[in-house]
Design a protein around this nucleic acid. Structure first.
Lengths: 231, 231
DNA sequence: CGACAACTCAAACAGTCGTTTTAAACGTAC
DNA sequence: GTACGTTTAAAACGACTGTTTGAGTTGTCG
């Protein structure tokens, strides 16, 4: 089984100091206000650079957004692939069991590491990612599908092997639901907080993992859903 | 135990035909494009009304957005309260058990009914709701907290009784995580679809319920999360 | 009929948006 | 020194934004 991480598939672009300042400022403002509600003048003012610098270093506002996203996403996705590679290697050599929790941790560990590392965007990027999910960036979608679609395929295959008694359709649903919890938990999307009644301080990554992993593992490992549950 | 649904707590405003057309058009466009990216000219053009009608019937764009939201949310929230009242009445009279699935269904049934009823916005409103969660409308937040905060309190109390062996902190986490799955599943927020690799057609409400309820019930009913799961 | 309210309409308002342009400063090579 | 590509600076571009204005239409009641 060949490694999925080739060294030059996704080369890291190098940015000048001005470009980096723009990226940092844009990242924070995009998360806080959203893409449409953030103006280039706000970004350049916060970054302490000139307005025209945006269109010089990046071509347009949309291209800037994609650069903001790609800078954080690519390293994270590579880490996910490394986790899956390591798990499969351990299973092949008999050193580990391919159970549900092991697959879950292949996502949780990179997400946890990212959340705790401000130099890679920290929790801010995860929130930005959740904005991308709700807002519908066609171009970014196509990029993710083309460049990183196999990541999902890998997780699907791994979970399928961990849940051999479930049909592939049910495995897909478990993956969909499980990733939904994990993703939004790390992003801090707390519906209950909208109502001002959340008793959960959902910002400490370690606490999130502690409570989330048992929930997700139990949900993914539930008995097959034979009958419609409304009965 | 008094009923939580008073008949005049949230009176339904009546809208003229023009105002209704504006609300319908705005609802669809807000979901598709987001609040900031949708212009009043797009809304009025799609509704077939004059631009100034928006500021005549509603005061401003922000007030229009709140009207769009409130029109759908209030009836739905009332239905949730009725479900909780009915469950508590059944439990008090010994006709039903207060288990996790019963509490979950107090949310699922109204959400399912809403998703299947286009005349109340259908799945479109649930998607709009998920936008509200990510974008951060201060005013809407305050309204939800003030007018409907007790809804969350009711769910918390019910789940706490269904999970008597868990601490209140853990009950809060289970509620947070469980509602996260249910909410985003109904809203159709599929992370895997971002990568173009989702094998799940997450748009049929009955199918969503069939696969989601066992997942959520199992997750909420998991054993207490004693040790950090990373070990 | 006239009077009054509800509502619609086209036009204009002041402001902001992303983007472009033009000129100036910079470091480096000849 | 001059010449050059790179980066920054300020100003202007046209298009679009939410909102307001004031005249016009409609329908209803007396």
């Amino acid at each position: 089984m060949k490694s999925s991480v080739s060294s030059d598939a996704h080369p890291e672009p190098k940015y000048s100091e001005t470009a980096t300042r723009i990226l940092d400022a844009a990242e924070g403002l995009f998360v806080e206000l959203g893409l449409e509600a953030t103006s280039l003048r706000q970004i350049t003012q916060q970054a302490g650079v000139n307005l025209a610098a945006v269109n010089y270093h990046f071509r347009s506002k949309d291209a800037l957004f994609e650069a903001v996203f790609a800078r954080r996403f690519a390293p994270w996705a590579r880490e996910c692939l490394r986790e899956l590679d390591a798990l499969e290697a351990s299973v092949a050599s008999g050193k580990a069991a391919l159970d549900v929790e092991a697959v879950v941790m292949c996502y949780v560990r990179p997400a946890l590491a990212l959340s705790k590392d401000p130099s890679r965007g920290g929790a801010v990027f995860v929130r930005l990612f959740s904005r991308v999910l709700v807002e519908n960036h066609r171009q970014l979608r196509e990029t993710l599908s083309r460049e990183w679609g196999h990541l999902v395929t890998r997780y699907t295959a791994a979970l399928g092997r961990a849940l051999p008694r479930l049909s592939s359709e049910e495995v897909a649903w478990r993956l969909h639901l499980g990733f939904s919890v994990m993703f939004h938990a790390f992003a801090g999307n707390d519906i209950l907080k909208l109502f001002g009644r959340s008793a959960v301080s959902a910002r400490d990554p370690d606490l999130i993992v502690k409570h989330m992993v048992p929930f997700v593992v139990a949900g993914m490992s539930a008995a097959p859903s034979g009958k419609p549950a409304a009965g």
